[in-house]
Nucleic acid binder design. Structure first.
Lengths: 328, 328
DNA sequence: CTGTTAGCGCTTTCAG
DNA sequence: CTGAAAGCGCTAACAG
């Protein structure tokens, strides 16, 4: 039945007919058991995280890209949910799943998880850089220093100096990729001779309501002329706030988003954004995992530079007084 | 190791210690093989469909609800992608997967698929009503006649008579749930003594660009005062069109969406929408599948009535001439 | 080219 | 309560 070349065609024919008449369906589980390959890639995520993330354009783009790539490689994606986002609980669910390898989406830095997985010989990759340990190299990163730099430089070129960089935090911590973006942000300020001030960095938990309220708070006490926003949900929350309170984009505030271009293009107003090639990085991530599964030597990928897509949410900074004069 | 009560505690202790010192991890595949239970639910979808759907708020809500419910029942979701959305190709991928049962998201009406699955004894459910055959009862439906009715009635109460009902089509066909909504739409028109005209129904493929262009076309030749839009992507496309072309919502056009309330609440303008309880129906769908998997008698669920959430995108119809007079 | 058999790692049963 | 053994359905190896 498995198209072996050792079988005479007429015999195969007879077998196939018998199979058909008996409604025989090979037992897939036994095949997986025997062959040791399930052709399943596990996507590990905490229940809380998935319920927040699924509404996030970045996650949707990643999910789509991973699923498509896995399909092309003959794999399907198993969504593995862990009740807690703790290393031990992740390890527990991982070792109880039938999958050839695991893609771990973790909101916490999990060095103890990597050692558990290594010890157990389970192939895994992380979807981004979670750890600052150079040994933990099983992830595909983007060039986030560059991303933060190019957004800030563009705003500085437009004469903005009173910029806020809004970062999502997870359990009170700034993620490594956001730290990199801040590095790029500071580098640009430095080049333009603008002093970095701590209040330029605003941390916000990534949910819609919290983001909305914190943006509201921010604009009650301060009037920055430009915002860089590091996650999609907060970007939507900020735009909703501006809509509700009559701020015009980009006349009153310039906004730069970070994330998949498609999303920002379909948004109104059209957003200028730092665009990462999610398809590319997802493909590379699956390639990396397959290399590990098959025991092939792992080829390290250089991060791909993001791209600044300029749309309608950013404009040259004009001093309010000048504007007021013009209007009268 | 499986906490059998037949084992003396001290023996168990010794076994556990030995396991630990040898870094023993039970082989999950063998367990699945032996027990015949993978605790995996397959979500079957075509590659094309998933890449469109994943950007759609309705899919995200459903995916989230299914994953959460499966998790609560001790299952994980396997995303099974089929290259073609044909019954045979669906069946092919289904029978090659390790899963205890399957949730089928199919854009086509697939009566031949159900018979293949029945014959093979594979437990399955459909995510919605795909077939008009009363025997195909393995799905959880919503009360779509009521949904179409309540949206239309609300607009009629606001004096709108020039209404368009915009329906997504798949391969040129209106899906059964949309046919039901049209039934409700017509019922409301009937009650208010308004004659149904064929041009009131506008069919549009659900993608963003096509939707945008077709809405554009529609408004170049006609000026309906109210829109009911049956899918989220088209709703976003229509709102983007109105934004781009300076139509004010709800002063110039009233808009009612269909789908998850959360999405429309976070949208600007806030949309009046017919809200379906996706969490409820996803829970019921998983329950139904688990009943079939476990061979328990299948309890049929009555569809739950949708709810009309009134927000800012609908207003009383005012004759343009009256408005023009007021303005001068 | 065909038919038979060992054995994957687990769970369950059964004898002691 | 413990240790031994059968067997799940398949694939691969081997003898004929």
């Amino acid at each position: 039945m498995n198209a072996s070349s050792l079988v005479k065609p007429c015999t195969r024919q007879r077998v196939l007919e018998a199979a058909k008449s008996l409604c025989y369906i090979p037992n897939k589980t036994a095949r997986v058991f025997k062959s040791g390959k399930s052709h399943i890639l596990g996507l590990v995520i905490s229940t809380q995280h998935i319920s927040e993330l699924v509404l996030n354009a970045g996650f949707q783009a990643r999910f789509k890209a991973l699923t498509a790539k896995a399909h092309n490689e003959g794999y399907n994606m198993l969504i593995i949910t862990s009740t807690d986002a703790e290393p031990n609980s992740y390890f527990e669910v991982i070792k109880n799943q039938v999958a050839d390898g695991f893609i771990i989406l973790s909101p916490s830095i999990n060095e103890s998880l990597t050692s558990l997985l290594e010890e157990a010989g389970i192939p895994y990759v992380f979807n981004m850089k979670y750890s600052n340990n150079p040994e933990d190299s099983y992830y595909i990163s983007s060039d986030d220093v560059e991303g933060g730099y190019m957004a800030a430089k563009y705003l500085l070129d437009l004469n903005h100096t009173d910029i806020r960089f809004i970062l999502g935090i997870v359990k009170g911590t700034i993620m490594p990729f956001n730290e990199d973006r801040v590095l790029g942000f500071k580098k640009a300020l430095d080049e333009y001779g603008i002093a970095f001030k701590p209040e330029m960095i605003v941390t916000i938990p990534g949910q819609m309501e919290e983001s909305y309220n914190l943006i509201h708070q921010l604009f009650q006490t301060q009037k920055p002329s430009a915002l860089m926003i590091s996650n999609e949900t907060t970007t939507v929350a900020a735009l909703n706030y501006f809509y509700d309170y009559g701020y015009r984009i980009p006349q009153d505030v310039s906004v730069i988003g970070f994330g998949p271009s498609e999303f920002f293009r379909h948004h109104r107003p059209n957003l200028t954004n730092v665009s990462y090639d999610i398809t590319w990085s997802s493909d590379k991530l699956v390639d990396l995992l397959l290399q590990r599964i098959e025991g092939r030597p792992v080829a390290l990928e250089r991060p791909k530079k993001p791209e600044l897509i300029i749309r309608g949410s950013t404009a040259r900074y004009v001093q309010p007084s000048v504007l007021a004069v013009k209007e009268h």
